[in-house]
């Protein structure tokens, strides 16, 4: 994963609530067994609808996507963040995210930024005007110059800032995991003998 520090640039606006992962990447593209190349399938059906906001030329190439509440609801498919990132987005800003989507984003270095409704509203209304997201300071600078603070779990922030591999971090705690298995693990179902 590439480290994430400051993301600065134009904002693309998708002023819709409850954007679910079925819209972000429809099921017919989940048959691929690769991890890359999903960008061309992003919002497959919506991009083909007349008037879909992200088709607007001034939104092309924007690194920041602003959207309505409950973004990324529905299916746990990580293909959704893969598609958004592969398309070119580096951060998604919304009043709220679904839990699984949000967590999936932080695993791949796509920054989910939760801001109050009024701050997201400014981004949506002024798009494509540029904004800056500073993960080190946990501050978003809106097009008006107003600074708004945001929160992200401390460990996720640390990983993102450093581009660390989460599995490698957990592997450093293997002694703790082995101790758990030795002392506290229950007789669970053995899937090899069911």
């Amino acid at each position: 994963m590439k480290p994430v520090r400051v993301i600065s640039g134009n904002v693309a606006a998708l002023d819709r609530a409850d954007v679910d992962t079925d819209q972000i990447i429809p099921k017919q593209f989940l048959k691929r067994i690769e991890r890359s190349g999903f960008g061309e399938y992003l919002f497959w059906d919506w991009f083909r609808e007349p008037g879909f906001p992200l088709n607007r030329i001034e939104f092309h190439g924007a690194p920041i996507l602003a959207a309505g509440r409950n973004f990324g609801s529905g299916s746990s498919r990580e293909h959704a963040p893969w598609a958004l990132q592969d398309y070119g987005y580096e951060a998604i800003v919304a009043p709220s995210f679904s839990d699984i989507f949000r967590s999936n984003c932080t695993k791949i270095g796509l920054l989910p930024v939760e801001l109050p409704e009024d701050a997201v509203r400014e981004l949506l209304d002024r798009a494509p005007d540029a904004a800056t997201i500073d993960l080190e300071r946990l501050i978003v600078t809106l097009p008006s110059g107003r600074e708004v603070a945001f929160e992200i779990e401390a460990d996720a922030r640390e990983r993102l800032l450093n581009g660390w591999d989460e599995i490698a971090l957990t592997e450093q705690r293997i002694v703790e995991i082995e101790r758990y298995e030795a002392e506290r693990e229950r007789d669970g179902p053995n899937t090899l003998t069911v």
């Binding site: 991890r35 746990s76 990580e78 699984i100 967590s103 999936n104 695993k107 791949i108 599995i167 957990t170």
Partner: peptide, 15 residues
């Protein structure tokens, strides 16, 4: 439910 990165994390570490 978890995403694919987490699936890999569980396969590797069971946590």
């Amino acid at each position: 439910g978890i995403g694919t990165s987490e699936v890999e994390h569980v396969l590797a570490t069971q946590t």
